[in-house]
Amino acid sequence: MSATMTNTGAAGHSAPHDHGHHDKTSTVIFGFWIFLMSDLIAFSLMIANYADAEWHGIANGPSPHELFSLGLPTIETMALLISTFTFGLCTLGMKYGASMKRTVGWLVLTLALGAIFLGIELYEFHEFWTEGNTPQVSGFLTAYYSLVGLHGLHVTSGIIWGIILMVQMKHFGMNDLLKSRLVRLGLFWHMLDIVWIALFTKVYLMGVLS
């Protein structure tokens, strides 16, 4: 029951609120939503910078058309898409009282898919890098590495966060505080897939079309 989480909030409200008894969990999650939106601004600015650099910042480096192919990025995209789905199954089961084993199972699968995504991304970076296409070559490559890399850093921190949560679940059992944290990681993870839709489309799909 959510009653255990209710009013454990630091500023616990004593009087009934306008919109009924508001509980701390939903407030924390709403705060996290706002943080995600702020993060989204960062990504959108990076994408705008990429759009400009891909247009005017090729300099002596390769153009997106020369650099990208769709094979690996599509596999990568699928891995992340499946992972966002499995995370959904993880939090959905948790809400409806699935066993902890099952919840952790879905989480492990999600993080593993995230790791596959990251692996492919790093492999691609490595390939470009060894061909001499480093971020120091042109404005376009700078924008490419930093945009995709920023997303990759988010995925990395999501994986670390997930591992920490699994350790905490082992210590605490599945209490409401951990459920709230898991839901927030879930939102973070879903948001990363949404950001990846924009990245995949702008960088790779539109890149090979340019």
Binding site: L45, A53, A59, P135, Q136, T142
Partner: peptide
């Protein structure tokens, strides 16, 4: 935050966000 991190990368990692050459803007 984004602009100042980009400037830091330009300065210390040789990136070309805002440089006058190599396609920076």
């Amino acid at each position: 935050t984004v602009a100042s991190f980009m400037l830091a990368l330009d300065r210390h990692a040789g990136f070309h966000f805002f440089t006058a050459s190599n396609g920076g803007n």
